[in-house]
Amino acid sequence: MEKARDIVDWLAGLAATSLWFYITLQIIEVDRQLVKREELEADEIAIRLAGCKGVFIFARMLKQFEREGYTISHESILGFPALTIDERIRFIYEKCQPG
């Protein structure tokens, strides 16, 4: 009977750990998406204020960072990558396409 109780306890621990892990991953993803959305909104405001010509200069600067080996533009509050330099460059060029 004690062996069955040990198995039940082990399964309960596994379930609790799995739930904790799942919740943690969800928090990380929400944090990452929030930072990404806020940064891209800031880039969109910059496009409206400075115009595409001005923002293309910034995009060239970002490309230089990429050439030097930097890939992450922003990290989430918890320290995980939230936005890559490539994502920012693509966002800028998508927003500044004519038409």
Rank of each mutant, 00 (worst) to 15 (best):
R67N: 12
W10S: 13
A15V: 12
I47V: 04
C96S: 12
R5I: 00
R90H: 11
E38V: 02
I45K: 06
G51R: 02
I72S: 04
L78D: 05
G99M: 07
V8C: 05
R5G: 04
L11I: 03
R90V: 03
D9A: 12
L40D: 05
L25G: 14
I28P: 00
Q97Y: 09
A42E: 13
I57G: 14
I27W: 01
C52M: 07
T24H: 05
Q33R: 07
D43K: 12
R5D: 06
I92A: 07
D9H: 05
M1K: 09
G13K: 07
L62V: 04
W20D: 15
K53L: 14
L62E: 12
H74G: 05
G99T: 01
L11M: 11
T71R: 00
L25I: 12
A16M: 11
C96K: 05
T84W: 05
A50F: 00
W10P: 10
R48V: 12
I45G: 09
L25C: 13
A50V: 05
F58N: 13
G69F: 06
S18P: 12
I57D: 15
Q64W: 08
F21E: 11
E94L: 13
K53G: 13
D9C: 03
F91K: 01
K63N: 14
T24F: 10
Q97D: 14
T24G: 09
L14C: 10
S76R: 01
A59E: 10
A46V: 10
V55E: 14
L34A: 08
K63W: 09
W10M: 15
D43S: 14
R48D: 14
L62W: 00
E87I: 00
V55A: 07
Q64D: 15
I72W: 04
K36H: 04
I28D: 11
Y93Q: 12
H74M: 13
A42N: 07
I23M: 09
I47S: 11
I57P: 10
A42F: 06
I28A: 05
R90D: 15
R88D: 05
I57R: 08
L25N: 15
A4V: 03
T17L: 15
T71V: 04
L19H: 11
E44M: 03
P81A: 09
E75Q: 04
Q64E: 09
E44C: 11
T71G: 02
E41T: 01
I77Y: 13
I89V: 02
I7H: 02
R32K: 08
K3I: 14
F56G: 05
I27P: 04
L19Y: 07
E75H: 01
T71K: 06
E29H: 00
A46I: 11
V8I: 03
R90Q: 06
F56Q: 06
D31R: 03
G99R: 09
R88V: 06
I28F: 07
R90I: 09
T71F: 05
A15N: 12
I45N: 15
I77K: 11
C96G: 04
E87T: 00
E94F: 01
E41L: 07
T17G: 14
E2S: 08
E44V: 00
M1W: 01
F80E: 14
I72Q: 08
K95W: 10
A59V: 02
R32G: 01
S18T: 13
E39M: 02
A59I: 00
T17Y: 10
S18W: 09
R48T: 13
E38C: 06
I77C: 11
E44D: 11
A16T: 08
W10N: 15
L11W: 00
W10E: 15
A46P: 09
S73M: 10
E41S: 04
